[in-house]
Design a protein around this nucleic acid. Structure first.
Lengths: 161, 161
DNA sequence: CAGAGTCAGTCTCCTAAAGGAACGGACTTG
DNA sequence: CAAGTCCGTTCCTTTAGGAGACTGACTCTG
């Protein structure tokens, strides 16, 4: 199937996708985030093929999103935990949840709710501007070329923006 | 490859992934968002196989994320534009950009910048709580079961959360 | 101390999806 | 009327994902 590599594109979306772009990774991240940390648990919770799970975990560890940590020496056992980099990726998950709740949840309502530590309220995430604090949706911005624009990663094909 | 279907899981992440979970879709969305609306343009900008592009566009239109709109009758020509549902998905892209900028941009800096219409500043998106307005990252919330929990879509395998 | 159980993978076989490239059809332009 | 543009479709090859059996190290139980 020789999947196209995204990592060379001068685009943060493409580069993010390169890390968690294939379908299982976000779900693995979600599971680790809620405390499903071990191979066997992940496999049975997700119903993912063991082979693919191994590949994904290895990749996510290589990318510094997860850390493989031993919790027992004898027998050798490990669990996967989020790094800081991985924890920040979970913000992406909360935004996915927001969209999924709005557009795919249907009658039954959202499958999970979030209670914000700071205020104790059931709430959802809202994107705001880091400069002025007002709502900042994709339709509220102009896109301009930045310093890293047009600098492909390793001099290969001129794709992306 | 018989990809596992995520749409049955009682999880908004899985259901969102079902719509844009495979690698090209977010990039297609990005391109349409920045004004690359036509088949030929998308194909050459992304370097995606024409076959896969056709499949993705068809799927995204079916899902109501894009709309296929004729801009010429003779010859019959169309372009793809974002629906409201699709535009809201772009918020997800801005969050991906944020993460990609922080963790993968490197020396060169971010490839694109966003200027917020409301304040005119170059800024990035920041997730806050819809209830109290303070920052709301994945680490700032408790996850609780919601009304749609454990209600699988069509009574199949008991997966997800 | 034999046998069952647990955990974390690895291996093999099969199928289906992605990539690449050529082709087609409807129309426009020189 | 030949060349070009746009938007796909078809065919072929490569390879990734799914299913599930198997392994190996160790523990637990009667």
């Amino acid at each position: 199937m020789q999947r196209t590599q995204f990592s060379d594109m001068a685009c943060s979306i493409a580069r993010t996708l390169d890390v968690i772009g294939e379908p299982w990774s976000p779900l693995i991240l979600r599971d680790v985030y809620v405390g499903i940390n071990r191979f066997e648990q992940l496999q049975s919770d997700l119903g993912i093929s063991r082979k693919v799970l191994t590949q994904r975990l290895t990749w996510l560890v290589e990318q510094g999103v997860l850390e493989r940590r031993a919790y027992s020496d004898r027998p050798p056992r490990h669990e996967y935990v989020l790094t800081t980099k991985g924890a920040e990726l979970c913000d992406l998950l909360t935004v996915m949840v927001r969209w999924g709740d709005r557009w795919t949840a249907g009658e039954a309502g959202p499958p999970v709710l979030y209670r914000h530590h700071a205020c104790g309220e059931i709430a959802h995430v809202e994107p705001v501007c880091s400069a002025c604090g007002r709502p900042m949706h994709a339709t509220d911005v102009d896109v301009l070329p930045g310093p890293g624009a047009s600098a492909e990663r390793s001099g290969s094909e001129p794709v992306g923006r």
